[in-house]
Amino acid sequence: MLTRRIIPCLDVRDGRVVKGVRFQNLRDAGDPADQAAHYEATGADELVILDVSATAEGRANAAHTVAAVRAVLGIPLTVGGGIRAVDDAARLLEAGADKVSVNTAAVDDPSLLTRLSERFGAQCTVIAIDAARRAPGVAAWEVVTHAGTRRTGMDAIAWAREAVARGAGEILLTSWDQDGTRAGYDTELLTAVSEAVPVPVIASGGAAHAAHLVDALHAGADAVLAASIFHDGETTPSALKAVLAAAGIEVRR
């Protein structure tokens, strides 16, 4: 039986980790490779690197970052941010990413998913979907892009189905309502999407406690992504897994 995965996310800008973990045993808290090795050693099942560089120059560093992380990392690595074309993805995969994640570029041109999947395989192609409720308490979500600033009007569930039909092998699903709130994942959204598609769904946005992870996994998520929950050293993937296991969820320990 497949275990449920815990996936830390590193935000990287211009080759440096922003909002990283503040652990004293790290030589350099801004170094992505040091952070990556630390996460693997503390029980992470996979790692996501999100390149949040604002400039093309900054993004050109992403391949160097990926190569440095790959040299030390023995678990799967997904890289997202700024991928607009097959060639962008090819550079990151050659540098050592195992999967690439696309978001706005796929909304602008859904054929990008097909081209990525045909060239590299569905196992390499992750669709990141940012979803916001159409209104509080309403079980309908629309896709938002450009870091939540643009509402597309597209139905998030329908987009998830289309993305999978076009070749996405995994969905990284962020609730834009919950992201940054530390109030827990949007479990209703997770159930709706995971029932709509056959591929794994990674929950993102809102985690602050182990109980939030348990809720997301019970709601149908195959994996949980978290960032800030690890930043103050208040917990580790291994510590969270102990709680998940006690709740009857199978995890790798």
Partner: peptide, 24 residues
């Protein structure tokens, strides 16, 4: 089941396996 199989799964070696250990 989810297809493809994506993620960590338990591996159980046969008694005569010399290389593979139980694990994920």
């Amino acid at each position: 089941v989810r297809i493809p199989q994506f993620g960590w799964n338990r591996v159980a070696p046969t008694a005569d396996s010399a290389l593979v250990q139980p694990g994920y």
